[in-house]
Amino acid sequence: MKKMIIGESIVKSFGTGNEKHLVLNGVSACINEGDFVSVMGPSGSGKSTLMYALSGMDGIDSGKVSFAGRDLSKLSENELADLRRTKMGFIFQQPTLLKNLNILDNIILPSMRDNRKNAAGIIKKARVLMNKVGIAELEKRDITQVSGGQLQRAGICRALISNPKVIFGDEPTGALNSKAAEEIMDIISEINKEGTTVILVTHDAKIAARTERIMFMGDGKIVSEMRFEKFTGTDMDDRMAKVTEKMREIGI
């Protein structure tokens, strides 16, 4: 399996002097192409900080992060921005959509900034994605006129518009009810089956149980890992039992 993201001995702290707080304490992690990974841990364990470090959204104090063989510390801010915009997609707990734009315009905005000459192609692709995730009829709606689950689907479309190699999700189902969360995970799972690498930060054992690899964090380190086969929809009880047992074991 080809390696996509490699983090080596990552150290990250916030604050200075007596207020300095070590968040990542020598973390190493390797993500392969096509992986479906979740990161779990108690609040303050460093799981979101690790995601931001691996994506280049946040700098690190020491160690190394490489993406497809490129050392992120060697890239300029513009090069990092280009890499994130063209090779990575991001899904957050609360989609950062603009209130003055409708759903379709929010989805196409990042791509239109770079490629206005292909506006028709971008719009066509956005509509294909919207149809795929079940919000085709909402393209003219304002973001205040749709549900949280529908907003998250729009966020997924925006994350996919540039054909990213990897999707990062920070609690992507955290603000949704259980039915909407399950529907969003169905979409994310399908994205992974089509070949896109997926890395999710979550506190929800049911979400983690649908992934194929779980990294458990504690006190700024990866303290344990668990692997599963692809989720079939028939083995959730067994997977959940194993995840919750591990969570109890490491004190999550």
Rank of each mutant, 00 (worst) to 15 (best):
V65W: 05
D170S: 06
N163V: 00
V223S: 09
C157V: 07
E79W: 06
H203P: 10
T96D: 08
L50P: 05
S178C: 06
V243D: 10
G149V: 05
T197C: 09
S147E: 01
G7D: 00
G41I: 05
S13I: 06
Q93L: 11
R141P: 00
T173H: 08
L200P: 09
T197R: 05
K132F: 05
S224T: 08
S224H: 15
G174Y: 04
R127M: 09
S28G: 12
F92G: 04
E249R: 13
G44S: 10
F228C: 13
D82P: 03
I191G: 00
V37M: 09
L54R: 02
G195S: 09
I91N: 06
G89K: 04
N131M: 01
C30Y: 01
L24N: 07
L75S: 02
K20M: 05
R85K: 01
E182V: 02
G17L: 05
A126P: 09
E137T: 13
S43I: 02
G155Y: 13
E182N: 15
N78R: 14
I5A: 02
N25Y: 07
K206T: 13
A81M: 10
G148A: 06
D114I: 01
N25S: 14
N177E: 15
N106D: 01
F168K: 04
C30R: 07
I10N: 03
G155E: 13
K125H: 15
C157Y: 06
M236E: 12
G251F: 11
G17W: 01
I252T: 02
I161C: 13
K2M: 10
A29Y: 08
G169I: 07
H21Q: 15
A126H: 09
G7M: 03
A209P: 14
L83M: 15
D105R: 11
G56S: 02
A241T: 08
P110V: 11
L138R: 14
F231L: 00
G15T: 12
